[in-house]
Every structure is written in structure tokens, then in C-alpha cells.
């Protein structure tokens, strides 16, 4: 049969295929451009960008955890002005849509970061990372309260002329309520899941492995949780969902698409295999060919 069509339209973005690196696992693209041209990807997603430069947490910041990893990077980044002046102009020349992941500690900070990204003219979409602690609410993450989240998305929406994705935290009681709140606030799409908070203890030294004590769990270990959440969310929202969590192969990606995702992001797999994204793209095409699937729309959310 003919070559399968991997392209997808999401929230006004045209992607040549549904695979993009997940935020924080791909820097600002430069390091992986040494391995392959970035225009092979559906899009590039930057690491989290905050208003001011952030040095991040003390080390150790990463640890392996049976079939996954923990990280507590602490949003280390050079600040939105530097990113807009140095990283985005380079990324904009790579021939691939650019999604900037925006983070903040207050609503005002999110709004200002998104305003600068949107005004730069160098990004194609914004992904709001709402797993960050809200300093004005005692450090509770923005992404756990439907009211707080809807208000945040609504405020950001006003300054954002680009497609706006909200990246959901899985550390909540009912992710559907959160997803609906983001939709009500004006999100054009959702991305999920961010990392699950975990902890690992060095029993010989009797202390946590990570300097931050806790960190976010990602990788194959979280995949069933992520698939379940993508399924639950796509059952209730009317906006497109980009799924992620432990995707290592084309078959994993197909699983998310069958759960209801329009596209996928690949995080931890880049560390295990720097060629993970292009390999997964080829494997999706191969699966489609082998199973007579002409386009991704044929299988999206197809499970009975």
C-alpha cells in the first residue's frame, strides 16, 4: 500500500508527524541537532522557561529508578529574555515548529513569560507547565486546583496570540476536572502527563538519593498511568491532547494515539537512545504500513 500519512493538525499547527521531544529532555534542541536534523521531528519543545534566569536545584538532580528515572532539575534555564534573544532565533531556523514550555511561580510571572514568547514572533505555540509551585498559595502547584488553573489559563490566554497548550500534572485526584478547567480557561490543547512525584532512598547512607529529596518519575514505569490519563481526558474534553509518559517505541506511540492522543511527546527515551524520536517516527510508519492504516485519524481513540 502507499506510504502512510503521518501528518497531524493540532490546534492550528501543522505537524509533519506526531512525534516531538518532551520539554526538559531536549534542551533548546542544539545538542540533539548533532545527532539528526531537527526538521525530521513533528515539532521541537523547549525546556521550561521562566521570567528570570534560574540555576535550579542542588545535585544530585537525577537518579535511575527501576524502569524509569527521577529528576529534580528545578527549572534551571537562562530566563525568557535570553531564550528569546539567543535560543529561539536559532530554533526558528531549523525548519520545524517550535513549542516553548513556559513556567512561573506566580500568575504574573506566567503572563509575562508568555507575553514575551508570543511577542517574539519566533515560537509556534506555547505549552504552559502548571506543575510549578504557586508561591502565593504556600507552594501548592497551579495544576492541582481547577479554579486556580482556569484563572491562570484565562489570564495567560489574553496575552497569547499563539496556540496555547496546557501541560497537566498527574499528581491530582481526578485529572478530568483539571482538564476541563484548562479547557474552560481557553486552552487550545492539552499535553499530559508531566512527571509523577516520587522518592528514592539510599539505604546505606540513610538519606534520599536526590538532593531535593523528591523528584519527578518518568520513563517506561509511568506509561500505563499516562495511557489511562490520556484515555480519561480525551473522553471528556473537546480539544486535542498530546500524550506522553514512557514512550520508547512506535508501538508505545500508537498505544497513546489509540487511547485518544492526537500526537505524542518523547522524554526520557532521548537519554537512553539519542535517536529515539526519529526511530519512533519510522516505527509508527512501519506499524501503519503493516496494519493497513492510511492516516493517524483512522486509529485515534479507536479503542472499543
Amino acid at each position: 500500500m502507499s506510504v502512510p500519512d503521518l501528518s497531524v493538525e493540532i490546534a492550528g499547527l501543522h505537524l509533519r508527524n506526531p512525534v516531538m521531544p518532551a520539554s526538559g529532555c531536549f534542551g533548546f534542541g542544539r545538542e540533539y541537532a548533532r545527532f539528526y536534523p531537527l526538521n525530521q521531528l513533528g515539532a521541537v519543545v523547549t525546556k521550561a522557561v521562566t521570567l528570570e534566569p534560574r540555576l535550579g536545584n542542588p545535585t544530585p538532580r537525577v537518579a535511575e529508578a527501576g524502569g524509569g528515572m527521577l529528576n529534580a532539575i528545578g527549572l534551571a534555564n537562562p530566563g525568557v529574555r535570553h531564550v528569546a534573544a539567543v535560543e529561539l532565533p536559532w530554533l526558528a531556523k531549523q525548519g520545524v515548529p517550535v513549542i516553548v514550555n513556559a513556567a512561573g511561580q506566580t500568575k504574573d510571572e506566567y503572563v509575562e513569560v508568555v507575553r514575551i514568547i508570543s511577542a517574539s514572533g519566533l515560537a509556534n505555540a506555547v505549552e504552559l507547565n502548571v506543575s510549578c509551585p504557586n508561591v502565593k498559595a504556600g507552594g501548592i502547584s497551579f495544576g492541582v486546583s481547577p479554579q486556580v488553573l482556569e484563572d491562570l489559563v484565562c489570564s495567560v490566554r489574553k496575552v497569547c496570540s499563539l496556540p496555547l497548550f496546557v501541560k497537566l500534572s498527574p499528581n491530582v485526584t481526578d485529572i478530568r476536572q483539571i482538564a476541563l478547567a484548562a479547557q474552560a480557561g481557553g486552552a487550545d490543547g492539552l499535553t499530559l502527563i508531566n512527571t509523577l512525584i516520587g522518592m528514592q532512598i539510599d539505604i546505606r547512607r540513610r538519606r534520599p538519593v536526590l538532593a531535593n529529596k523528591t523528584g519527578g518519575l518518568s520513563g517506561p514505569a509511568v506509561k500505563p498511568v499516562a495511557v489511562r490519563m490520556v484515555y480519561e481526558v480525551t473522553q471528556v474534553v473537546g480539544i486535542p491532547v498530546i500524550g506522553m509518559g514512557g514512550i520508547y517505541s512506535g508501538e508505545d506511540a500508537v498505544e497513546f494515539i489509540m487511547a485518544g492522543a492526537s500526537a505524542v511527546m518523547v522524554g526520557t527515551a532521548n537519554f537512553t537512545d539519542p535517536f529515539a524520536c526519529p526511530r519512533i517516527i519510522a516505527e509508527i510508519a512501519q506499524f501503519m504500513q503493516e496494519h493497513g492504516i492510511g492516516s493517524l485519524a483512522e486509529i485515534r481513540g479507536c479503542i472499543a
Binding site: G24, C25, F26, G27, R30, E31, Y32, R34, K47, L55, G56, T59, P60, R61, V62, A63, M69, N71, I73, A76, T268, N270, F271, P274
Partner: peptide
Amino acid sequence: ERMACGVGACYGCVCQTGGGSGTRRVCA
């Protein structure tokens, strides 16, 4: 330092610069 990507992308492996005012990636 403990590393994840090993190529400079994840900022997992940083050390502090001389004055303690910045970080460098041990891997890159």
C-alpha cells in the same frame, strides 16, 4: 556528577562556577 543525557541537554549534571553565581554542565 550524576548524568541523564550526557550531552548537555537535561541540566542534570551541573556544578557551580567559581563565584558560585552560575552553573556549568559536567557532561558538556
